[in-house]
């Protein structure tokens, strides 16, 4: 080789030294290129946190806040001026903006795929049970539920070009079950557009992950357990290089009325609060809008049906915490769910 290149040993040693020096230089450079940055803030009635690795602070908090504000203006029922409120408060429909359209389209896909177990038109029922803007916590009677159900169903929505049209003037939608996932995806693609490819974006417990952290380690994502004896909320975690993780559960947002537990998850078919064995579902999918849409649907389905659904739709995987018939809290997951590890204390 040396002879072939006609290089004497002195020259070779110089070249080798240069190579070593260059390697050292690049290794330093790589480390410097790979600094951890964190951005935290408040949005959509919850908190968000972004961890990313880059040479320097490429992403500003103000940019992220701007994206989230844009989504709020489009899809938050808590903003009076929002597009969603315009839709809910008129009888015909609205002209959709880009965000709204993407979320509506995805919602329709998931609704069809789950036979309506996920349905954004559930909003009148959510209000009826006191989880919407109207906070009166009284128990609706069966007649009220029956008449409200008449206006629930994604079949009452029609997408025509950029318009969302009401086929039933009473239909109202709630995108809370999916907009957070979409927001997380939007921030993730904003990071990627800025050539940031190693990150965790988290908003209200919904996450999107890409790449790795320092020392080539995978990001560790904790899964919140149901309140147990441990003071730390997190005892289990998964390691992910790419994808999204979201959780839906009925162990936080609920109230008790006349001895019954009324959770914020309402079954769009029956009109009643979801009351099956599931306590929470954590979904792993390629993006957060998908995971976020399906986590609610799985809660409505119940364990058996959800596991069956996953068998036929392997791009979505899930981890379930549930109560068995004796009332013991147990957990299980679908075969393709990332390996669950325990945090050693």
């Amino acid at each position: 080789m040396i002879k072939f290149l006609n290089i004497d040993s002195k020259k070779l040693s110089i070249i080798l030294s240069l190579v070593v020096l260059l390697l050292i230089f690049f290794s330093f450079k790589t480390e410097k290129d790979f600094q951890r940055f964190e951005i935290e803030g408040n949005a959509q009635g919850t908190t968000y946190k972004i961890i990313y690795y880059a040479k320097d602070a490429k992403i500003l908090k103000s940019q992220v806040d701007c994206i989230l504000l844009e989504i709020d203006s489009s899809m938050s029922i808590y903003k009076e001026y929002s597009l969603i409120n315009k839709f809910n408060n008129n009888a015909k429909g609205v002209l959709m903006d880009t965000h709204f359209k993407k979320v509506i389209e995805k919602s329709t896909v998931i609704a069809k795929k789950t036979n309506g177990d996920f349905d954004i038109t559930v909003y009148p029922l959510i209000n009826l049970w006191g989880f919407g803007l109207q906070k009166d916590k009284f128990l609706p009677d069966s007649m009220m539920i029956k008449s409200t159900l008449l206006n629930v169903g994604f079949k009452y929505l029609q997408i025509k070009s950029d318009s969302l049209i009401k086929k039933n003037p009473q239909v109202k939608i709630d995108l809370n079950g999916i907009a957070q996932g979409y927001s997380v995806d939007l921030i993730a693609s904003f990071l990627q557009k800025n050539k940031v490819n190693n990150f965790v974006v988290e908003l209200g417990g919904e996450l999107r992950i890409n790449g790795k952290k320092e020392n080539n380690k995978k990001f560790m994502i904790g899964i919140e357990g149901v309140k147990d004896q441990d003071f730390l909320p997190i005892t289990k975690y998964i390691e992910i290089e790419k994808g999204a993780v979201t959780t839906s559960g009925n162990y936080r947002k609920f109230y008790k009325s006349e001895g019954k537990i009324i959770s914020h998850l309402i079954n769009p078919h029956t009109g009643y609060s979801v009351n099956n064995e599931l306590i929470s579902v954590t979904v792993y999918a390629k993006n957060a809008i998908t995971a976020d849409g399906f986590d609610n649907a799985f809660m409505v389905m119940g364990l058996k049906k959800a596991l069956k659904f996953i068998e036929q739709n392997k791009s979505i995987q899930a981890y379930f915490i549930f109560k068995d018939k004796k009332g013991n809290i147990k957990d299980t997951c679908s075969l393709g769910f990332p390996n669950i590890k325990s945090i050693k204390n």
């Binding site: 961890i51 990001f219 899964i223 997190i234 993780v245």
Partner: peptide
């Protein structure tokens, strides 16, 4: 832990403490 899925996450206070739930 880099992120937590669920309704809450470990909240560190300014002095480096975690509230016992």
């Amino acid at each position: 832990i880099d992120g937590v899925t669920g309704a809450t996450k470990i909240e560190w206070n300014k002095e480096g403490g975690i509230k016992i739930d």
